[in-house]
Design a protein around this nucleic acid. Structure first.
Length: 188
DNA sequence: CCCTGATTCGC
DNA sequence: GCGAATCAGG
């Protein structure tokens, strides 16, 4: 069995960047990406990036709650108390129109894509796939919650932790998928 | 001792 | 370039 070797692929680096920008800690990111904390710190350093908070600074509870809430876009309204809700429901409620698996990388270009000069709070900060080397376009879609760095679709991409089996296999699969998506017009 | 990020240095 | 070991602050 070939040992799984972690590789900083372009996609992985994009996820790293996004999470760093979002204020994620080295530990958080390493757990999600499946590598060591030192690996994340070292990579961030070599990329010339910086973590949102400085040295030894623990995330303030307020900031953490805000970020956690932003990440957990759904779920907040927990109704544990037996609310005497009137519960009208005169007619069949429409099913949630949320696509459970929007597993597609954002389009390389689009009407909302912005460059670094136009990127601002409230717009999705997700770096767009293959244009990283071309000067960098960002998703630019409005975010759902203030303080959030990405739109829903991009957030799901970033926080989708993948178990690492064979790196070569994973990369080959990813490249195959990208080519197929390109052919099918997913980026068009 | 927990957490955090920073730095070094052999690979 | 990578990251374990080590260092340093909260």
């Amino acid at each position: 069995m070939t040992e799984a070797v972690f590789i900083w692929s372009e996609a992985t680096v994009a996820r790293l960047k996004a999470m760093v920008e979002d204020g994620g800690s080295a530990s958080d990111i390493s757990n999600i990406l499946g590598c060591s904390r030192n690996s994340v710190i070292g990579k961030v350093h070599r990329l010339g990036l910086a973590f949102a908070r400085g040295w030894g600074q623990h995330e303030t509870p307020a900031a953490k709650q805000k970020r956690d809430r932003a990440i957990a876009v759904k779920a907040p309204p927990r109704i544990l108390a037996k609310a005497p809700a009137p519960k009208p429901k005169p007619k069949a409620p429409p099913a949630p129109e949320v696509d459970p698996t929007p597993k597609r990388w954002p389009k390389p270009e689009g009407p909302e894509a912005v460059d670094i000069t136009a990127l601002r709070a409230g717009l999705c900060h997700m770096p767009l796939w293959s244009d990283l080397r071309k000067g960098g376009l960002y998703c630019g879609k409005p975010v759902a919650i203030e303080g959030l760095s990405w739109c829903d679709a991009c957030r799901q991409l970033v926080y989708e932790a993948r178990p690492i089996r064979s790196q070569e296999e994973a990369q080959a699969r990813a490249q195959r998928q990208v080519r197929q998506l390109a052919r099918s017009g997913a980026f068009a």
